[in-house]
Structures are given as C-alpha cells and as structure tokens.
Design a protein around this nucleic acid. Structure first.
Lengths: 342, 342
DNA sequence: TCATAAATGAGGTACGTACCTCTTGTCAAG
DNA sequence: CTTGACAAGAGGTACGTACCTCATTTATGA
C-alpha cells in the first residue's frame, strides 16, 4: 500500500509512461479516449502527484515583482519583512522575488515603474498601488505582455488584474464600527482619520464603519473624515483642533496610514486616556500603544498570509491552475492587549 | 547566480561530496576542523538545503496517531475535519495519520487506548486528553517506547510530553475578560459556564478571565462557575435558575464545552437578547448564534493551524530538529459578527 | 490501398539530496 | 614498522517527476 506513482498509472491504464506524462501535464498528442483511460486509472488507484519530485524535476523559477509604496510606512515595512522571511525560509520555493518601491502618491511615477516590468524578466507582479486610470492602463499593458497580475491590500476592481489578495475592506470597516459601538454603549462623537479617501480601501472601510454605526449604534455620531493626504505633518493640528472643540468626542478610528502621527497628536491633547481608539494594521508603534492601553483594539491582517497568498496565486496563475478562493481569503484579525501575538 | 548545491559546498570547502553530506546530516566520521570548514562554506555561499530533493531522497514516512475525544462535540468534529483536509490536500506530505477516538471522561479507557500505541506502528502521537495521573503514566510509557508526544489544545505540563500545541489558556481567558469588561462598562454580574474545571484549559481560562476583570473592571462581579461535568442535560436548569434569580446578570462567559446546550438554555429564559455572551470555539452552532446577534464575541483558535502545527512539531521531533516556538504559536482569534471567516 | 499525420511507446537524462560501499590517506600507539 | 582506528574521497544508486528524442503503431482521408 505505498503511494502510487506514474508507473502505476501506466500499468493500470495499459499505456506507456510517456502517455501518462502527456495526460498529466496536459500536453497535446493524446486521444480523448486515452486521456479518459488514464484519468480513470488516476482516480482508481488514487494517484496524487508528488510535488516534491515534480518541483525538483521541473526546474522552473517563478520571477515575481512586488510593487510596494515607498516612504516611511511601518505597514509597508512589515510587508517587506514578510516577503523577506518567505523568501529566505524556503516555505515557498522556486520563486525569485524583486521588490520595487514606488512613490504611491505620484501615479505617473508608479506607471513609469510598471513600464519597466516586462515578460522577459518577470512572470508575475503583485501590486500595492492606488487606483487611477493611468495605473489601470499600465495593468492592462502588463496583462497584454502575458504577466500574471494580482493586487494586494487595496484592489483595482475595474482593471484587468487577475486576482485580489487582501481583506474585504468593507467588512474590516464594519468590524471596526461594531467594536466601536460595543465599546461605547453610552454614545458620543467619533473621529475618523485616514490618509486619503481616494484610496479604495480607506473609502470602503469608512463605508463599512458608517453603515454599522448607523444600523446598530444610533447614539454614536461619526464626524467627517480627517484626511492627511500623504502628509503626516498635516494631521496633528486638525486632530488637536477636533479634540479641543468637541467635548463629546469619545472615540477615534484611524484607518491605517500615519498611525504613529495620529497617536502622538492624540497624546499631546492629554485626552488620549479618555478616548476609545481603534486602528488598522498592527505595526510596532501601534503594538506598543496597545500594550500601554492607549489603543483599545487593532484591526489587522496577517502580512505573512497576505504575502504567501499572493505568491501562491501568482504561481497558480502562471501554471494556469485553478485558484481556491477559500484558501486565499485573508482573515480580518482583531487584536486587543490580551491577545497580542508574540 | 543559481541556487548553490551540495556540490558547490564541496568545491568551496575543498572536500568531497561525501564529507559535505556527513556534515550536513550530522553523521559521524568528520574532524571538527573539517566540519567547521564545511559550515563556513555553507555560510559563505548561502547554501540552503533543497527540501524537495531532500524529502524525495529520504523516502521516509511519518506515522502519527491523533487521539481525540469521542462523542458529539462540535469542536472535535472541526479538528477531525481539519485533519482530513490536511491529509488529503498534500499540504503536509510523507505523513500517515490515524485518528483514534477515546471516551475522554473515562481515564481508564483513554489509557487502554494509549497502550495500543507502540513504536512498531507509530512514530509519534498527538493527544487531546484530560489531565489525570494515569494518563501521565501512559505518556511516560509512550516516551519510553521512543515515540514523539505532543499535547494539543489542553496541556499536561507535568507529563513527559515533548511539546504543547495550542493557545495559552490564561491569555485566552484574559482576552475574554477584557472583551466582557469593555462591552459592559456599566458593570453587573457575569455568569461563567464550563464543562469541568478539572480540565486544565478551563481552569486557566477562568483564572485569566477573573484576573482581568478584577484588575480592570471593578464594576463587574463574576459569579461562581457553573460546571456541567460532561452532562449537558445538567446545564439548562442551573442556567435558568441563575438567570431568573439574578436581575443584575449582564453577561455570560461560556468556556467552550456544550455551547449548544448553553445557548438553548439561555434562549429559553427569554433574556438572551439583553445578555452579552462570549464563548469559546467557533463551531457551527456558535457561528449561527453570532450571525443572529445572540453571541457578542467568540474566542477561538484556528484548527487548521493547530493540526498543521502538531504535525510539524511531531515531524521535527522525529528528526531531532529544533522547533521554532514562534512559528508554532497558535493565535487567540476574536470573532465578531462582522469578521466571521467565510 | 497507400500516404500522411496523429498517437503512442521505449528509453533516456536531469533535478538535488540521502545514503551506501569501497578505497585511500593519516597518525599515533605498540 | 606494523596495526588499527578514524577521516576523507570516489563513485555509485535511488527517490518520482518532467521533458526530450526517436522509433513505431494506429487512424484518417483521398
């Protein structure tokens, strides 16, 4: 009762090894009838391809480019770290990964960077970029070149990308809204801070947040979004102003960019300890704030999963294999002070 | 710049392939100096063992037994499903897994079952069993036979088991306590329900829960634990009684066994919608209750991770390889209505 | 019925590692 | 100077799959 091999299939189906190989690897030159015969044999003896041997034999190298926003973002750093770990730890093998950083606030620069990517040097691309028409065009171009394209974290649904890897931002916003409402049954005003609502995920988070609060927590009123527009220096004054002029402010929802700046601004107002703060993305600064009881909860996604999923999907696309959506779904994680991962 | 192989090490270190092999696989017959030379070469050229080739070459099969509690437990069912998935999906290969179910309430039966496990048929065992002296002895016996032994979900810290795979129950209890406190800033009485405090994880959850409530939420008072002692029929009456006689009851913390019974008992009291309910383990019934807004939050652990981790650890133990604790740490997940995994 | 193309067979090599045997070299104790 | 133990080299086979070439069979259409 050992594990059956291709030889066993050949014997069972009464064909040669070469034919079995052709069927298994979907190569041409086999009659329909013979294909069926081989597949029946596979079913019957329960053959499963030995991926170790297969990977060893097919000395293929997948060359993927990861396009990430540049600049001092702790979240992006985490993603880069995750990528580095994945590559070094051999958890995913036969992949060569090149990280390209682009100034995400400058769509033209992003496009220029995407234009340097071509089929001669890469088999696939993972993108963490904003949503603009130019970038959508650049993605179309990449697809025409024959590259596999996935978007990460923030999607570009109306582009020709093959797949999106990341959490449902609306659900993430809804989760934040639910937590905020549950934490503040007495009601009051909630401030929402983000980098820019031009970024799709921010917008969707806000939508989800508002929807849940409106449905379930009428005592809570959500103030208009404060945007930093990629300039963290802009935030402190606005935040301080809101905190000062709004005595009923009870909560702050920071949607994930410039969390460090948001935190220090809040600290300066001296009212941080009275506020229920919920943030996105578990970066080092946010983690510390959680430990210090400054932040009530963090909504995050596991970057390790994110990165591995992107790689799996890219590989699947290159091999024209089906993608199991269920396996690629990234969880919306809730982190409190007491369940901080080590 | 291709991936270096053992041949490259041999060339770099100026030794033969056989010697490199001896060093890499820690076989005897190599001088200290030579070992150092080879290791230096490995470092220098950045060699990493090709696990595909290694696994292919070493045609070893790991035979593991999983001992799980029998009976109609939704949680156990989930674990079994996870095991089935792992085995079938080839995510972990070269492992043959046999599931043994035991009546966990009968330590003697558990011991008898463990006695059927021997080194001739298995290389390792994963146990999900209660903590009794007899079972500890049985574990010692398994270790003497030379088997790798890991405990899952609930630990037996004073046994000779090699490793524990699961969450820190105290932290899980603390997380539940923190959520309960945050959800109920007005204070009131909280009922705690469990199967039995004889089970180590239940006891620790309770400890963690109480600690956080005492530290941070003085307005909350935790009532004595209600135990079902493996008899779900016992619960309804007690629960109904408490709910009836305690007008200040605001929350219920169910620590993970018989959640279905707890839920239906609470439903019958008609006060479920006024209560903040927190439960452990995301089973189908609990999931539905979450969707229906009957349960506020669920603390759970990813059984997929749990099972894969157990297998990884068992394999590492068989190979006498170091175990990376950080990788094997199971997260304490918080699930609300809005971040339910699909 | 034969030419031609398509389908299949036979047999090989390669991937990188594990593990085996047999041989040669080295060095020190007797 | 031998003996023996140990270190190291040389060279092999095996794992299961991918992919290649070349020969041969079978089917198809004129």
């Amino acid at each position: 009762m050992v594990k059956p091999t291709v030889h066993d299939i050949a014997k069972e189906a009464g064909v040669s090894l070469a034919t079995v190989d052709r069927v298994l690897n979907a190569r041409p030159g086999v009659r329909e009838k013979t294909i069926a015969k081989v597949q029946a044999a596979v079913e019957k003896i329960g053959y499963v391809r030995d991926t170790n041997a297969a990977n060893l034999a097919r000395q293929k190298l997948y060359r993927f480019a990861f396009v990430l926003p540049e600049g001092p973002s702790q979240f992006t750093d985490t993603v880069k770290a995750g990528l580095g770990e994945v590559v070094s730890s051999q958890l995913v093998d036969r992949v060569a990964i090149k990280v390209l950083t682009v100034p995400s606030y400058d769509p033209h620069a992003v496009v220029r960077s995407l234009q340097t990517i071509n089929a001669a040097r890469y088999d696939g691309v993972a993108l963490m970029v904003p949503e603009t028409p130019q970038i959508r065009d650049a993605i179309s171009h990449l697809k025409e070149e024959g590259l596999a394209v996935v978007t990460m974290v923030s999607d570009l649904p109306h582009s020709t990308r093959d797949y999106f890897v990341g959490v449902n931002s609306i659900a993430a916003g809804r989760t934040a809204g639910l937590l905020m409402g549950r934490f503040l049954p007495g009601g009051g005003e909630v401030l929402v801070v983000t980098n820019s609502l031009r970024s799709r995920d921010s917008l969707e988070r806000r939508l989800g947040f508002d929807a849940v609060v409106a449905e379930g927590f009428p005592k809570l009123s959500v103030l208009p979004t404060v945007e930093s527009f990629d300039d963290p220096a802009r935030l402190p004054d606005v935040i301080k102003d809101v905190v000062k002029t709004r005595p009923n402010l009870v909560g702050v929802y920071s949607m994930g960019f410039g969390n460090t700046a948001v935190l220090s601004a809040l600290r300066e107002t001296g009212r941080l300890s009275d506020l229920t703060v919920i943030m996105h993305e578990l970066t080092p600064a946010v983690r510390q704030a959680l430990v210090d009881n400054e932040v009530a909860a963090v909504i995050t996604q596991n970057v390790g999963h994110l990165v591995r999923s992107a790689i799996r999907v890219l590989r699947g696309l290159c091999d024209q294999q089906p993608i199991y959506d269920a396996q690629e779904r990234i969880r919306i994680e809730i982190v409190l002070r007491e369940n901080l991962p080590y």
